[in-house]
């Protein structure tokens, strides 16, 4: 955690029109991301957690401008990505890469592993053509694979190995910022820790900055410096990792944390599980006021009328942002 923010996200929204009927009339809007703001300092890891469908992945894609945000701004190293021409955006992508959720879908089955990892180098014309294969070998050993793997095809590898290949590809251009979109949720439990530790290790060695998207709270705690909790397109709580896990303020965060089993039998004994009622409302028709009120154990009439803003409720020097009237 040092220096000016590398990534500044301001009031980011990503809406999808819902069209129906023969003439494809727009009948509604899915607000996948609705007014999200956060900063990520250079060298920091920001964890982003939430249930499926809460907009975490959409946020990640909008930050990298893989999806065009409906509103809001993303600044990378001080530069507004929305104002870049298509060509300068393409060359800026060198510094910000993505690791995908499914290692089975994220590698082109027709390209050899070496060709996949080499492609970013070809795209940005990094290094002489002859040196790129050496760089590929270097990247493969960096992620713990045999350099001979370059000649083989993705289908010859396991999920964990493929995720390593995906990471090697993301790191090929020496990016400063990596968005990891649930990089472990498609993997076997037994190899998740390997991949997470690899990513931590690479971060320390290469000075990376991560936006780490996940729904596994234990992994997020292990990875992150700060954590943002998302619910239905909004950030409801954002604080440093220890602060958030030790002193959760938002009722949603409390419910999430109460679902994590503890390895300590004494603690596990006293764990009170907060079970949320009902389903996540549709992001096409979110509740009025506070979006969490329909499932919130402490909601009052006020919550249906007033939308609680994200406010700092932390102590001096220890910011803790939360969006709830009663925290």
């Amino acid at each position: 955690m040092s220096g000016a923010p590398l990534v500044e996200v301001e009031d980011l929204s990503l809406h999808f029109p819902v069209r129906q009927g023969l003439v494809r009339r727009q009948t509604g809007t899915v607000k996948a991301v609705d007014g999200v703001s956060f900063d990520i300092a250079s060298g920091e890891t920001l964890g982003l957690v939430g249930e499926s469908g809460c907009g975490k992945s959409s946020t990640g894609r909008a930050v990298l401008r893989l999806a065009r945000p409906t509103a809001g701004r993303v600044r990378f190293a001080g530069e507004d990505l929305g104002r870049l021409s298509p060509a300068s955006l393409r060359s800026a992508r060198r510094h910000m890469q993505m690791v995908f959720q499914s290692p089975f879908a994220s590698l082109n089955p027709r390209l050899s592993v070496g060709a996949s990892i080499r492609e970013p180098l070809d795209v940005h014309a990094l290094g002489a053509a002859g040196e790129r294969d050496a760089r590929v070998a270097e990247l493969l050993s960096l992620v713990g694979l045999d350099p001979g793997a370059a000649r083989r095809h993705p289908h010859e590898f396991s999920g964990g190995q493929r995720q390593r290949i995906g990471i090697a590809r993301a790191l090929a251009t020496n990016p400063r910022f990596v968005v990891a979109d649930e990089p472990i949720s498609a993997l076997d439990v037994s190899i998740r820790a390997q991949i997470v530790n690899l990513m931590r290790d690479l971060k320390d060695r290469l000075g990376l900055t991560y936006l780490f998207i996940a729904h596994d709270l234990a992994m997020v705690r292990h990875m992150s410096d700060r954590v943002a909790v998302m619910y239905l397109g909004r950030i409801v709580e954002l604080a440093s990792c220890d602060e958030l896990f030790d002193r959760p303020l938002h009722p949603y965060t409390r419910a999430l944390l109460s679902a994590v089993p503890s390895p300590d039998p004494d603690v596990e004994e006293g764990r009170i599980r907060i079970v949320l009622q009902g389903d996540v409302p549709s992001p096409a028709d979110p509740p009025s006021g506070c979006r969490f009120r329909t499932r919130c154990p402490i909601a009052t009439a006020r919550c249906a009328q007033e939308d609680p803003p994200l406010r700092d409720r932390g102590s001096p020097g220890l910011p803790h942002q939360v969006a709830c009237h009663f925290s």
Binding site: A92, Q97, M98, A105, S106, L107, E119, V123, T173
Partner: peptide, 14 residues
């Protein structure tokens, strides 16, 4: 819509 196409776009491919 495949992820590897998104990955290519994300790396700055034309």
């Amino acid at each position: 819509e495949m992820d590897y196409v998104e990955a290519a776009r994300g790396m700055g491919a034309t």
